[in-house]
Nucleic acid binder design. Structure first.
Lengths: 213, 213
DNA sequence: AAGTGGTCTAGACCACCTT
DNA sequence: AGGTGGTCTAGACCACTTG
């Protein structure tokens, strides 16, 4: 941090540092491992430890449950199921969920409100081949997200952020005009190699996602 | 992962696990510490280790230099300085940079291209009180971002993502229509408690930021 | 071939927090 | 008050990678 070692410079080995600071090598190792995870240094066996040329910048975003997000901001959370359909997999969904045209998926439209005002519009597909028990859930009181967290607590997730022009049916439920820029979060969830769910979360204009690093 | 312990369940202590797996307590400790950093378990002295009720979901996004981002996608990177102004701090900038109305900032407009096509429009302010050496830089060949990484390799960063309607001057340089939804990254950088720079990065419609967790 | 980091062991002391 | 995780030590072996 002081700039004592230039970017790219080789810093002393673990044994040297342990002597310098009069501590065990394991202690130095842990410190350097943590700096390496933060992206400040680069370590290679035999080659030694170097200050990164361009510090590897990485930001951690917390992905809260929508309920927690609204309540943390001091709002009263309110969930409403708008529509619930069992559909045959359309071509793009067949590809995404690895299904055939005869297999089925659950399609859900939901609205999340903060203090009664629309906050997030959700359009979700659930793979009924991978999660047949979803067909028995009515999603009236429990939102799909909260249901899924209970049903499949650990899963692989791919998330993406983008900006899109609001279209039907999001405009109607978010009470905004057509083609307003909305912040879109897409999330695909997997478990044991099977696609479980895919969701589009539309946020009101002005919504931000923040992080520090 | 197997669901052997329910969310919220207390798992065995470090000594018990060390016996169960015939290894040292330090080894168990490291494994549990890593699971805790991943957000899967929660640890408290005396209280023990529990499976998290709702797994703390956090995504790590890499924040590459724009040059690296374009080149990684196979594009030819091209940078152009559009405008460079020394300005007196406007009220909102005074607040952001902790300046008085007499103090100055550098205002820069830049365009980043991939294979000759506009990719990102950049509007940046640099605090000339905190970084007086920036006044001598011309930013013709070296982009402000790359200059700053060299000048201040380690700094605190606050980043935010949102969706906005494209306005002047971004529309002209990105060659898009007014009010097109654009993906906006805002980044504020600090060092030793001083605000160094604030930048707005406008991306073309369709731009996505992805992460897995 | 040799030096570096990666990992593990066995033991120890301590701070914190719950009971 | 006591049990838990947090951290450190000293020593050891090994895998990787580069000179």
């Amino acid at each position: 941090m002081k700039g004592e070692w230039q970017p790219g410079a080789l810093i002393p080995g673990e044994i040297d540092l342990a002597n310098e600071f009069s501590c065990a090598r394991a202690t130095i190792n842990r410190a350097l491992r943590e700096l390496s995870e933060e992206g400040l240094i680069e370590r290679k066996r035999k080659a030694g430890t170097r200050v990164r040329e361009a510090p590897l910048r990485q930001a951690r975003f917390e992905i809260p449950l929508i309920r927690a997000e609204i309540e943390a901001a001091g709002g009263r959370y309110d969930y409403q199921l708008l529509q619930r359909l069992v559909v045959k997999a359309s071509p793009w969904l067949q590809e995404r969920f690895s299904l055939t045209g005869r297999q089925r998926a659950l399609r859900l439209f939901c609205l999340h409100r903060s203090d009664g005002a629309p906050y997030q519009f959700e359009e979700r597909w659930i793979n009924l081949v991978a999660l047949p028990e979803a067909e028995a859930a009515d999603f009236l009181a429990l939102s799909p997200n909260e249901w899924l967290v209970r049903a499949v607590p650990f899963s692989q997730v791919e998330i993406s952020f983008s900006a899109v022009a609001a279209g039907e049916p999001a405009v109607a439920h978010l009470e905004i005009e057509k083609d307003t820029p909305v912040f879109l979060i897409e999330r695909a969830t997997w478990w044991a190699g099977q696609a479980l769910t895919y969701v589009k979360l539309f946020h009101l204009p002005g919504h931000r996602i923040r992080a520090r690093y």
